[in-house]
């Protein structure tokens, strides 16, 4: 047509191009105003930007409000057990290096019932994006204290205020051996949220992203004011940090220069309490990855397996 040959086009076009719709499925059933909606939109966007084939993408979650996430993705999903997203995700990835993994977990799922797996998943450092939806409350079971609830939080299990100080998920993760990527962002800053998830997806190992999330149903007061106040967020600036559009970066009122290769400094950032630091706290792309070990002897033929087994049986022959 128009005298052009089909092969004259010099722009390489992928065989299949995935649009946002390819990553979406059914209507998310979270409450109106729940931070989950914007995180879902951000993940759709990152998947599309990176053109992950939906059939090669797996979202693994535990149980809780956040863990409904895989049902709203057009990819493969695994909505498993409370606290057990990490072992399942690691099992999926171990011998399937070709799959793109997202782990969706909540503050109860990750930092309470699944805390043991959290330690070890960080240590295994297998390539996956971990999104911790941290709203500081148990939502699905209707307002119980979570391990990240601020001291004194009024809930159905602590009507007079919670009595044990919370876990700081950033500080805790930064303390685990072989940690390789820790970032923080919020559900109410879509541009930063997307840029952070994109950076996490580019990381070669386990990228742990704590997303400060609003729960309009049970924790209206926790981040309600903060999300409306431009002074609440502190943008972490560094050339190795989150790649944010300069125009958007300029909109942050508070800034902090922070080198994400400095683990000690990252731990100091994790202890900032007069605002929410957002950005990349720590990254090390050189850490050992357990999925490299898991994939080291894939694809052996049945003939080779038979031969090896025969040799083993010889050892026991009499």
């Amino acid at each position: 047509m128009f005298g052009l040959k089909a092969d004259a086009c010099s722009i390489p076009m992928p065989e299949v191009y995935y649009g946002l719709d390819d990553y979406a499925k059914s209507t998310a059933r979270w409450c109106p105003g729940c931070g989950g909606h914007s995180i879902l939109a951000a993940v759709h966007k990152v998947c599309k930007d990176k053109q992950y084939p939906p059939e090669k993408t797996v979202c693994v979650s535990g149980i809780g409000c956040s863990s409904r996430f895989p049902h709203y993705m057009g990819t493969y999903g695994f909505h498993g057990l409370h606290g057990r997203a990490f072992p399942v995700a690691c099992g999926v990835k171990f011998r399937r290096p070709d799959l793109h993994l997202f782990v969706i977990t909540g503050d109860g799922d990750c930092c309470s019932i699944g805390a043991g797996h959290w330690v070890h998943a960080i240590r295994y450092n297998m390539k996956m994006v971990v999104l911790l939806f941290d709203n500081g409350i148990y939502g699905l079971t209707k307002k119980q204290t979570s391990p990240t609830s601020a001291l004194g939080t009024h809930s159905n299990t602590h009507p007079h205020g919670s009595v044990v100080p919370p876990i700081n998920p950033l500080q805790t993760t930064l303390g685990f051996s072989n940690v390789s990527f820790v970032a923080q962002t919020t559900d109410w800053h879509p541009a930063h949220l997307q840029a952070t998830i994109r950076k996490a997806a580019d990381h070669p190992g386990l990228a742990f992203v704590r997303i400060v999330q609003r729960c309009p149903m049970f924790m209206k007061d926790l981040y309600g004011d903060m999300s409306a106040d431009p002074n609440s967020l502190i943008l972490l600036n560094h050339e190795k940090g989150i790649d944010l559009d300069p125009a958007i970066a300029k909109s942050f009122k508070r800034n902090l220069d922070h080198d994400p290769s400095d683990l000690g400094a990252a731990r100091e950032v994790a202890e900032i309490h007069d605002g929410i630091p957002v950005g990349l706290l720590y990254q090390n792309t050189e850490n050992m990855r357990y999925d490299d070990y898991g994939a080291h002897n894939l694809g052996m033929s049945i003939d080779d397996k038979s031969k090896a087994l025969d040799a083993l049986l010889d050892r026991y022959a009499i």
Binding site: V58, V60, F78, G80, L81, R84, F86, P87, V88, A89, C90, G91, V92, K93, F94, R95, R96, L99, G116, H117, V119, H120, Y293, G294, H296, N297, L298, G299, M300, D304, K305, A308, L309, A311, L312
Partner: peptide, 27 residues
């Protein structure tokens, strides 16, 4: 030698969870 790997998990729950994940992924 036959293309397999042993995973020593952090606990019994993780051991089966890991296996379930692998099996879900076709392994």
């Amino acid at each position: 030698k036959v293309g397999g790997v042993v995973h020593q998990a952090e606990d019994e729950i993780a051991a089966i969870g890991f296996a379930v994940g692998a099996s879900y992924a076709g392994k």
